[in-house]
Amino acid sequence: MRPGHWHLTEDVDGFLDRAGDFLQSRPALHTLPLTVTAAVRDRGAGAYAAGAPIFGWLERGGEVRAAFFRTPPHRLVLTPLAAGEADALAAHLAGLGYPLPGVSGDRDTATAFARAWQRHRGPRPLLHERQRLYRLGALTSPEPLPEGRGRVAGEQDREQLMRWYHEFVDAIGEVPSSDASSWADTRIANGRIRLWQTPDGVPVSMAGTTAMVAGQIRVAPVYTPAHLRGRGYAAAATVEVSRAALAAGAREVVLFADLANRTSNGLYQRIGYRRVTDFALYDFARSEPEAS
């Protein structure tokens, strides 16, 4: 099989013109490139202080077969690739001197690329996290629900959301995608965060969603402060945003869960989420400076 040809660009509109139909052909599996490229298009590439996002697609026989994106300082994100295709991309990016802190993709693709990157560039890949992608089947509300009710987060919740955003990012060991104020303002304006609050009106958990792209919405983030966990608040908040996503017309509602967290995986399955496939996130051991 011929490896095909990789095309790279910093133009998100040009990328979506060429690869958009391919990404939309499997909305659940391609949830990350669909939602992130939509966000980049809305924000503009200049909003990324760490460097311009980069996009790429693999073309073979005049058709797009795979794609990737990276928004610095985050990992490279890949759609599924054969081992030879992953090796060809790693060789291509290494030849360009392109720096990478890590890679994310379905388990086999991410592992193949991480090993290829080590061969071509040298850094030892370190497994950061294994994730499972779930898709909602029949939504089932947990019984009994905790006392309280769900509601849409509003301007009065801004400081709370900013604080919880920082706590969530710290808890998963990631780099923030945006500053907390912009993150909160965007989601309040679009009504994309649901809170579960106690009967006396105190918020105890949040669950958010991405904008709908290609008929799919991804639930993210789901966060409950550590001292409030184990009371059913996260399940209740997740049911709230899942129901809202369906009401908005989403054909597919998806989410990722850390496979090391048995509690969250069990929770999502109990309320109706079913496995799509497993993902892997790798970090590269030797620090590589960002291109200037």
Rank of each mutant, 00 (worst) to 15 (best):
29 L>F: 02
152 V>G: 03
102 G>T: 07
264 S>L: 09
10 E>L: 07
36 V>D: 01
176 P>R: 01
40 V>P: 02
60 R>E: 14
125 P>Y: 01
238 T>W: 00
83 A>W: 04
285 A>Y: 07
170 D>T: 14
25 S>K: 06
232 G>M: 04
205 S>Y: 05
215 G>V: 11
71 T>H: 00
240 E>F: 03
229 R>Y: 05
14 G>E: 13
83 A>T: 09
241 V>P: 13
266 G>V: 01
219 V>Y: 00
187 R>S: 07
171 A>Y: 04
288 E>L: 13
174 E>W: 08
173 G>D: 07
54 I>G: 02
231 R>M: 09
30 H>V: 13
62 G>N: 06
126 L>W: 07
226 A>F: 09
193 I>L: 09
253 V>S: 00
87 D>K: 10
111 T>A: 09
109 T>F: 00
289 P>W: 02
121 R>A: 13
117 W>Y: 11
103 V>M: 02
202 V>I: 14
230 G>E: 11
145 L>K: 06
171 A>N: 10
86 A>T: 12
272 G>T: 12
185 D>A: 14
252 E>P: 07
177 S>M: 05
119 R>E: 13
253 V>G: 01
20 G>Y: 09
57 W>F: 12
167 E>R: 14
16 L>W: 05
178 S>H: 06
21 D>F: 00
80 P>D: 01
143 E>I: 09
238 T>D: 02
212 M>N: 04
77 V>E: 12
94 A>L: 10
251 R>S: 11
164 W>F: 12
122 G>W: 06
286 R>T: 15
246 L>G: 11
252 E>D: 10
